[in-house]
Design a protein around this nucleic acid. Sequence first.
DNA 1: TCTGGGGTCCTAGGACCC
DNA 2: TCTGGGGTCCTAGGACCC
Length: 421
Amino acid sequence: MANTFALVDCNNFYVSCERVFNPQLEGVPVGVLSNNDGCFVARSAELKALGVTMGQPLFEVRDLVRRHNVRVLSSNYALYGDLSARVTDCLRGFAPALEVYSIDESFLDLTGMTGSLPAYAADIRRTVRRWTGIPTCVGIAPSKTLAKLANFAAKKALRDDSGVCDLTNPDVRDAILARVPIAEVWGIGRRSAEKLERLSVHTAADLRDLDPRLARQVLTVTGERLVYELRGIACMPLDLAPSPRRTIAVTRSFGQPVTVWDEMREAVATYATRAAEKLRAEKLATEAVQVFCHTSPFRPGPSYSNAVTVEVQPASSDTFQLIAAATAGARRIWRDGYDMSKAGVILTGLIPEGKVQPDLLQVADRQRGAKLMAALDAINTRMGRNTLVPAATIGRSWQMRQEQRSPSYTTKLGEVPVAQA
DNA sequence: TCTGGGGTCCTAGGACCC
DNA sequence: TCTGGGGTCCTAGGACCC
């Protein structure tokens, strides 16, 4: 039996989240910024209409923002993560199997479903809107790649403005594929689009009709798979139980350039602290800590970029051990005389906590450390993140800017909205 | 003045081994 | 002057995604 996938994607997700709690943002141009208040990462329809693009730096459009009174917000991931979970819960009621693909998208398995698929999709949209306040679009097709493409068609109203696009019918599919530019196909980025354009592949239909062997030659196996997916042959199954993750990263651009070692040490110690928290929250330990720092790629002056990996043996999730490894690494790549713009700590070599082979001579130390970490986590969970922090992380001159953040309406008791009746 | 963060997958090439 | 072949593992870098 042919597969049927539905991709449910939230519209302008971060903006929609902000609007749920602040109705004054309805109908006006709204943008949500990246960390450091740097670039736009979400735009309302009104802001897109003004010509602001995805990833555009705020400073480039200051004038436009003032002239049109654009509401500009810092990102509030606690809020978005919480609403995302509510949307997912709602979707689970509509399909026997579901893959959470990103914070604002899920694939649903609708294989074997009888009755009208578009009507079912319309019901999904209505229900999610009513239960969570979030608007969505739904794309339906026999492969995940085509479901993504159907969702694009629904968002752009290529067929109609119902917010739903069903591409299970081959005739409808052919007509739509011929209208979708190659760069909009899932998995085709800028570089691949350039290569394909040179081969006169301009639309999704052109790629579908390409010789799979040629696709493999130009774009490796992922390109070949894309050709089959576009032909309606599903090569990518639903990922129901995501495989264990391979890396944990905490990286930030600085609010201002860092030029002295002490500040770099504080920043890296802070990132290591946060990374260790994530590690313990997922019951993992790491055997390697990678540290990097670099100057700004956008600014003139001497540039520098370096990274180093420090082994941790035996594997650990202890904040103090990770701080020690990260700062030792950072010291090795640190150079005086540069304006460092960013640094990060990336934990590679993750293993489950239970699989760590402890050093027999240090079992007692490990147990003491584990108790300390458990106490630390308990206090920070109860009293709020950063209630208790290692001394090495104190000093915050390098911290990122976040001037426009909305309250944590759903995740901090003190910021829950109050309704007056 | 001001330009995000956190992931995955694929491949090529080097190290190492027999 | 002449200096194997094949396998595995690891890492760095490229490309892509949201």
